[in-house]
Simulated assay, not measured.
Amino acid sequence: MTATEHTLRNTTLSIRDGIAEFTHQRPEIRNALTPELKHDYVDMLDIVEDDRSVRALILTGSGGSFCAGGDLKSLLAMRDDPSLAAHQPEAMRRRVKRGQGWLRRLRDLEVPVVAAVDGPAAGAGFSIALTADFVLASERASFSMVFVKIGLVPDMGAMYSLPRTVGLSMAKELMLTGRRVGAAEAHKLGIVHAIHSADALAEDARRFAARFVDGPREAMALTKNALNGTFEAPYETMLAAEAQGQAVAAAAPYYGEAVQAFLRGEPAKFDWDRRR
């Protein structure tokens, strides 16, 4: 497969061997969620959604930080802008809504998304990590819902995703205290899928993502999208999703080729255990 490199405003995007890797590149501000980084997420999603060679996406940060949360300088500038004084609540609402647009696209992306978290994932950075399908963490990773410390409420989907990950009581604790959770506790709580050394995290994340490359794209996309709604959907709705999804998956070339290979006694193209 060909390799492509994109240099965006605060990030880089590389696509190689079926894996897209999106890296936050402002370590001097701990990869805070600047307006430029938000624009980069939109551009990255445009590229990845249109590239059928991409079979998995890795989100990561440079310089020992995943994302330290919202850019407080831009928040203060908005608060102190005299032109917004009479409309500040509405301006903040619009700002949050814009972020929710690309966040929804990230959650619904039809390939597995892996967050490789090294160092802090705080505030909105924690929220972004929770949007991924899998979170791999270094031993020095940390997670914190710091919004309360500056008098704000959790956003970027956190009020939806965190209770579904750790349970309602623990979500309340993490959101109302803003305390920092280390990698080991985050793994115990179900936030983190696996812990790796800081030196090995990047390569381990690529190896993990590479195991999806030979998988059935249609079947995995249908499964992921159905599961994203499983906590809200009635039983009958999930049964209908199964039936509709199976009809589409069975019509895809992958299914017929995989069955024929099985009947010939050949190893499966996608075998998670065999790739370990």
Rank of each mutant, 00 (worst) to 15 (best):
R104G: 12
G99F: 06
V111K: 11
I128V: 07
G64V: 05
A124C: 10
K73W: 06
D118K: 14
V111E: 10
G70K: 03
L106P: 08
D46T: 15
G61C: 02
K38M: 15
V113G: 11
H39R: 15
G61Y: 00
G125R: 14
V114S: 04
H87G: 04
S74C: 04
Q88L: 14
K73P: 02
V113L: 12
K38D: 15
G63E: 05
D80V: 06
L106N: 06
R98E: 11
V48R: 03
G125C: 12
S53I: 08
L75G: 07
L76S: 10
A77M: 01
D71C: 07
V114R: 10
S127G: 15
D71W: 03
R98L: 11
D80I: 02
P89Y: 09
V114I: 15
L103E: 06
L109N: 02
K73T: 08
G99H: 11
M44K: 01
S83L: 02
L57I: 15
G125F: 12
R79V: 00
R94Q: 14
R107W: 07
A116F: 06
D80A: 05
A121P: 07
K38T: 12
R98P: 00
D118C: 13
K97E: 12
A68C: 13
G101E: 13
L106C: 07
D40G: 05
A68W: 05
R52I: 09
L57K: 13
K38N: 15
P120E: 14
K38H: 14
S62I: 09
L109C: 04
R107Q: 13
M92V: 08
T60Q: 03
A121C: 05
A56I: 02
L84Y: 02
D108F: 08
A68M: 11
K97Q: 11
L72F: 10
R79F: 00
L37R: 15
A116L: 08
K97I: 08
G61L: 01
C67E: 03
V114T: 07
G99L: 03
S65Y: 09
D51H: 08
Q100D: 15
L84H: 00
Q100P: 02
M44D: 01
F66S: 03
G123H: 13
S62E: 12
D108R: 14
L109H: 03
G101K: 11
R104T: 15
P82T: 00
C67K: 04
D81M: 01
R93I: 04
R79Y: 00
S65F: 11
A91F: 03
R107C: 10
Q100N: 14
